[in-house]
C-alpha cells in the first residue's frame, strides 16, 4: 500500500522548512554549518539511532496494541466522558468553514512541520545540547505515549457523541483518514501525542530562545493550534490534551536533566554506551572524508 498523501506532505513540509531555514535559522548559520556538518552528524547519530529504535518499537506496539489492550487494558471512555462531559461538543458548536480548513491543515501539515523543523534547526546550531534534548524528549513522549495506549482504551469524542461532534477532518478531507489510520487506532486517544509533541517543541523553543528568538512565537502559536485542533476536529477529549501537556512538561524536564552538563556520571554512562556506535560512525565518516579529500586532490591535479 502506498503512503497516503505522501506527495502533498513532502511538498508542503519542504516549503515550510525552507522558509523556516531562511527566516528563523538564517543563511549565515547555514553557511557556517556547511563546514562542520560531518562532525555534527557524528555527535548526534547515536541519538537519532535511539529515536529510530523507539519509533520502531512504538509502531510495532501500536499494531499489536489494540488487540492486546482489549484483553488487559482499562476502558476509560466512560470516565473521561463523565468528567468532562460535552466540552468538545461545545467547542465544535462554534465551528466555521474557515476554521475547519485552518485546523485540518494544522493538524496534518502544521504538525509535521512543527515536529520536523526544530530537529533540523537544532542540528545546525553549534551547541550540541538542544538537538540531544529534542531527540531525547521525543523518545520519552513516544515511549510513555505507547505505554498509555496499551494500558488505556478510550474512544475519542466523535465516536461517543456523534450528535454533537462531527468528524470535521474526514468529512472535509477524506483522504487524510487513510493517513491517520496508518498511525492511530481510534481507541488510542489518551494522551494526545499531537499535543504532547507540539508542546514539547514549544517548551524547547523557549529554552533555545537566545539562538532562535523568532521560533518562540511561531512554535507557540502552532503548538496551541495543533492542541486545539485535536479537540476542534473531534479527535481528542480535553483530558487527552491536558495529559498531553503534562507529558510534554515531563519529557522536556527529563530530557533537560539528562543532558545537563552537571550530570557527569550520566554523561559518562552515556559515553560508554555509545562508544561502539561512535567508533563505527567515526570509521565510516573517516572513509567519507578520505574519499572527499582524494577527489579534491584529483580535481586539483586535473586542473
Amino acid at each position: 500500500m502506498t503512503f497516503p498523501l505522501f506527495a502533498e506532505i513532502a511538498v508542503v513540509v519542504s516549503l515550510l522548512t525552507v522558509l523556516g531555514l531562511i527566516t528563523i535559522v538564517g543563511l549565515d548559520r547555514l553557511w557556517a554549518f556547511r563546514e562542520q556538518a560531518l562532525d555534527r552528524f557524528q555527535g548526534v547519530f547515536p541519538y537519532l539511532l535511539m529515536l529510530a529504535i523507539v519509533l520502531a518499537i512504538n509502531s510495532y506496539l501500536r499494531q499489536v496494541g489494540p488487540s492486546l489492550s482489549w484483553v488487559f487494558g482499562w476502558q476509560i471512555t466512560q470516565e473521561i466522558f463523565a468528567i468532562e462531559g460535552e466540552l468538545v461538543g461545545v467547542i465544535q458548536s462554534y465551528s466555521h468553514p474557515v476554521a475547519d480548513l485552518y485546523f485540518s491543515y494544522t493538524y496534518i501539515y502544521g504538525y509535521i512541520f512543527l515536529v520536523a523543523f526544530p530537529v533540523i534547526a537544532y542540528f545546525v546550531l553549534s551547541d550540541g545540547r538542544p538537538v540531544r534534548e529534542i531527540t531525547l524528549a521525543y523518545a520519552i513522549n513516544y515511549l510513555v505515549g505507547v505505554l498509555c495506549y496499551l494500558l488505556f482504551i478510550a474512544y475519542g469524542p466523535r465516536n461517543v457523541m456523534p450528535d454533537l461532534v462531527d468528524q470535521v477532518l474526514y468529512l472535509n478531507w477524506p483522504e487524510s483518514n487513510l493517513l491517520t489510520r496508518e498511525f492511530n487506532a481510534n481507541v488510542n486517544v489518551f494522551p494526545s501525542l499531537h499535543t504532547s509533541l507540539s508542546v514539547t517543541v514549544a517548551l524547547l523553543a523557549v529554552r533555545t530562545r537566545d539562538s532562535y528568538p523568532l521560533w518562540v512565537p511561531v512554535s507557540s502559536l502552532l503548538a496551541c493550534s495543533v492542541a486545539f485542533s485535536t479537540m476542534y476536529l473531534g479527535i481528542h477529549w480535553g483530558i487527552d490534551v491536558l495529559a498531553g501537556v503534562v507529558l510534554a512538561v515531563i519529557s522536556v524536564g527529563v530530557a533537560a536533566w539528562m543532558t545537563s552538563p552537571e550530570r557527569r556520571r550520566l554523561d559518562a554512562i552515556g559515553r560508554q554506551l555509545r562508544a561502539p556506535i561512535d567508533r563505527l560512525v567515526g570509521w565510516l565518516l573517516a572513509l567519507v572524508r578520505e574519499y572527499r579529500d582524494h577527489r579534491e586532490s584529483d580535481s586539483r591535479l586535473d586542473s
Partner: peptide
C-alpha cells in the same frame, strides 16, 4: 477495509 464512510465514498 477503510476507516470511514467518507473515505470510502471519496475513493
Amino acid at each position: 477495509a477503510l476507516p470511514s464512510n467518507e473515505t470510502a465514498v471519496e475513493l
